[in-house]
C-alpha cells in the first residue's frame, strides 16, 4: 500500500496545535510508517504539492495570504481538516475583530512599542478586516475542536481518516479543551 500523502499548515494560530500533533509519544512512529509528510512547517518545502490526501490546518484566516493559501490547498487536497479552535472559530486571533485593523496595528506597533514605533508594511501579508474561521473561506471536511485538541484526538482522527472511516470527534474534545 502506498503511503498517504499528508500535509499540515500553520495559519493564524500559536503553533500549539502542531505541538499537540507532535506530542503523541511513540504513536508518532506508527503514524510515520503510514504517511508521507509532503508539506508542513516541519518540512522544508516552498510550494504546496498536488494530490494531497489529508491536510491538517491550524490557525484562522487572517490575511490575504492565508486566504490565497487556503484556496490552493483546497484545490490540491482530498480531505481538509480544521485543526483546533483558531481554524474552527477564529478563537484568540479573532478577538481583534471588534476593532478596526488600523487601531490594532497602532496599538501593537506604536502605542505599546518602546523601540521603533512603526507599523510594518513591507514584506508582510496584509491583514483582512476580520479574522475568520477557515470554513468561511473553503469547504472543510472534518472539524477537530480544542485549544489545542488533545494529541490522542488528533491521532485517532488521522488514523480513522487513513482507514477510510469518518472520525468521531465529539466525545474526546471540545471548544477550549
Amino acid at each position: 500500500m502506498s503511503k498517504a500523502r499528508i500535509a499540515t499548515v500553520w495559519l493564524d494560530g500559536c503553533s500549539g496545535c502542531h505541538m499537540s500533533l507532535l506530542d503523541m509519544d511513540e504513536k508518532i512512529i506508527t503514524l510515520a510508517s503510514l504517511i508521507e509528510m509532503v508539506y508542513s512547517p516541519t518540512v522544508d518545502m516552498k510550494q504546496y504539492p498536488q494530490n494531497v490526501d489529508v491536510c491538517l490546518i491550524e490557525g484562522a484566516a487572517s490575511s490575504d495570504e492565508d486566504i490565497h493559501k487556503l484556496k490552493i490547498i483546497r484545490l490540491n487536497t482530498k480531505c481538509l481538516v480544521a485543526l483546533g479552535d483558531c481554524a474552527i472559530t477564529g478563537n484568540v486571533p479573532s478577538m481583534r475583530n471588534m476593532y478596526k485593523v488600523e487601531e490594532i496595528l497602532n496599538r501593537a506597533y506604536v502605542e505599546n512599542a518602546v523601540l521603533q514605533q512603526q507599523i510594518p508594511r513591507i514584506g508582510v501579508p496584509v491583514l483582512q478586516t476580520r479574522c475568520r474561521p477557515i470554513h468561511e473561506i473553503v469547504k472543510v471536511d472534518v472539524f477537530v475542536p480544542g485549544c489545542p485538541p488533545p494529541s490522542e484526538t488528533i491521532y485517532n482522527c488521522v488514523a480513522d481518516l487513513l482507514a477510510g472511516k469518518t472520525p468521531d470527534i465529539g466525545a474526546t474534545t471540545r471548544f477550549g479543551k
Binding site: 479552535d85 472559530t89 478563537n91 484568540v92 479573532s94 478577538m95 471588534m98 485549544c147 471540545r174 471548544f175 477550549g176
Partner: peptide, 8 residues
Amino acid sequence: RNHVCAVC
C-alpha cells in the same frame, strides 16, 4: 456574542 473558550 464572543465566546473564546480557550481563554475563558
